[in-house]
């Protein structure tokens, strides 16, 4: 199976990543190998198997709804590259 350059560009956009030409080439090689190795997996009949995102099949684990102290504002802002006293700063959202 061949992944088109456009598909790869769309995927990297979804991940908000820009691949260099060299990286794109390397990833294509990895994908070629991946799809080859996956062929046998495609032949396994899994229609009757329920998909689960957790091996222990945990579901809906809840704790009591008790209010606890949240992260103080100062600490929340401490690691951010650009802030004022109460918020994170980001570049303009709409392209010019």
């Amino acid at each position: 199976m061949q992944v088109s350059s456009e598909e790869l560009k769309n995927a990297s956009w979804d991940a908000r990543i820009e691949l260099t030409q060299q990286e794109e080439k390397e990833l294509q090689e990895q994908l070629h190998n991946f799809f080859m190795l996956s062929q046998a997996m495609q032949n396994i009949d899994l229609n009757e198997v329920e998909a689960f995102s957790d091996a222990h099949k945990n579901q809906n684990i809840l704790r009591k709804d008790i209010v606890e102290p949240s992260l103080p504002l100062k600490q929340a802002l401490e690691n951010a590259p650009d802030t004022d006293t109460s918020s994170f700063h980001v570049p303009r959202i709409i392209e010019e």
């Binding site: 990543i17 390397e26 990833l27 990895q30």
Partner: peptide, 10 residues
């Protein structure tokens, strides 16, 4: 990591 994340997105 960039390639791995792109693979995950794909």
């Amino acid at each position: 990591l960039k390639k791995f994340l792109t693979f995950g997105a794909l």
